[in-house]
Amino acid sequence: MQRVNMIMAESPGLITICLLGYLLSAECTVFLDHENANKILNRPKRYNSGKLEEFVQGNLERECMEEKCSFEEAREVFENTERTTEFWKQYVDGDQCESNPCLNGGSCKDDINSYECWCPFGFEGKNCELDVTCNIKNGRCEQFCKNSADNKVVCSCTEGYRLAENQKSCEPAVPFPCGRVSVSQTSKLTRAETVFPDVDYVNSTEAETILDNITQSTQSFNDFTRVVGGEDAKPGQFPWQVVLNGKVDAFCGGSIVNEKWIVTAAHCVETGVKITVVAGEHNIEETEHTEQKRNVIRIIPHHNYNAAINKYNHDIALLELDEPLVLNSYVTPICIADKEYTNIFLKFGSGYVSGWGRVFHKGRSALVLQYLRVPLVDRATCLRSTKFTIYNNMFCAGFHEGGRDSCQGDSGGPHVTEVEGTSFLTGIISWGEECAMKGKYGIYTKVSRYVNWIKEKTKLT
Rank of each mutant, 00 (worst) to 15 (best):
Q2E: 09
R3S: 11
V4E: 08
V4I: 12
M6I: 05
M6R: 15
M6K: 11
I7F: 09
M8E: 08
P12E: 08
L14F: 13
I15V: 07
C18N: 03
L23R: 02
L23E: 02
L24G: 04
L24N: 03
S25K: 07
S25L: 13
E27S: 12
E27A: 07
E27F: 03
C28V: 03
A37L: 09
I40E: 13
N42R: 05
P44N: 10
K45F: 04
Y47G: 15
F55H: 15
F55V: 15
V56W: 03
Q57H: 12
L60K: 12
M65R: 09
E66I: 04
E66T: 06
C69L: 04
S70R: 10
S70Y: 08
F71A: 06
E72H: 10
R75F: 07
E79V: 13
E79C: 04
N80I: 04
E82H: 06
T85M: 08
W88T: 15
Q90N: 15
Y91M: 13
D93N: 11
D93M: 08
D95G: 09
D95I: 06
C97T: 01
E98A: 09
P101V: 04
C102I: 00
S107D: 09
K109T: 07
D111S: 09
I112P: 05
S114R: 06
C119S: 00
E124S: 04
E124N: 04
G125M: 00
G125A: 01
N127V: 05
N127I: 05
E129N: 04
D131F: 12
N135Q: 14
N138V: 05
R140A: 15
F144V: 02
F144Q: 02
N147E: 10
D150I: 11
N151E: 07
K152S: 13
K152N: 13
K152D: 10
C155F: 01
C157P: 01
L163R: 04
A164M: 11
N166A: 03
Q167Y: 09
E171S: 07
E171C: 04
P172I: 05
A173C: 06
P175K: 13
P177E: 01
P177G: 03
G179N: 02
G179D: 01
R180W: 05
V183E: 10
V183G: 11
S184M: 05
Q185L: 10
T186Y: 12
S187L: 12
K188N: 12
T194L: 06
V195W: 13
D198I: 09
D198S: 13
D200W: 10
N203L: 09
S204C: 05
A207Y: 13
T209V: 12
L211S: 13
L211K: 08
N213Y: 07
S217D: 12
S220Q: 10
N222W: 07
T225S: 07
R226G: 13
V227T: 11
V228F: 10
G229E: 14
G230E: 12
A233I: 07
K234Q: 07
K234D: 11
G236K: 06
P239W: 01
Q241R: 06
L244A: 02
V248D: 07
V248P: 09
C252W: 01
G254S: 00
S255E: 02
N258G: 03
K260S: 02
V263T: 03
V263Y: 01
A266N: 02
H267R: 06
C268H: 01
V269A: 10
T271D: 05
T271A: 09
G272V: 09
G272M: 07
K274I: 06
V277G: 01
A279E: 00
E281N: 05
E281V: 14
H282Q: 10
H282V: 11
H282M: 09
I284L: 15
E285G: 06
H289Y: 05
R294V: 02
N295M: 08
N295P: 03
N295Y: 07
V296Q: 01
A307D: 06
N310S: 15
K311P: 11
K311N: 05
K311H: 05
N313E: 08
D315M: 01
E320C: 02
L321W: 00
C335H: 01
K339T: 10
K339W: 08
Y341S: 10
Y341N: 15
F345K: 01
F345R: 00
L346E: 04
L346Y: 05
K347D: 08
G349A: 06
G349W: 05
G349F: 07
G355S: 06
G355R: 14
R358D: 10
V359W: 11
F360P: 09
F360N: 15
A366I: 08
L367C: 08
V368P: 08
L369S: 12
Q370S: 11
Y371E: 05
P375R: 12
L376Q: 06
D378I: 03
R379N: 04
R379M: 14
A380K: 12
A380H: 07
C382T: 02
S385N: 10
T386R: 09
T389E: 11
I390E: 05
Y391W: 10
F395K: 01
F395A: 01
C396E: 01
C396M: 02
A397P: 01
A397S: 04
H400P: 14
G403Y: 14
R404C: 13
R404Y: 15
S406R: 11
Q408G: 13
D410G: 06
G412C: 06
G413L: 06
H415F: 15
V419D: 01
V419T: 04
E420T: 10
T422N: 03
S423M: 11
F424A: 02
L425G: 00
G427A: 02
G432A: 13
C435F: 03
A436P: 09
A436W: 06
A436H: 11
K438L: 12
K438Q: 15
Y441S: 03
G442R: 09
V447P: 03
R449F: 10
Y450I: 01
Y450N: 01
V451A: 12
N452Y: 07
I454Y: 00
I454Q: 00
K455V: 06
E456Q: 11
K459W: 05
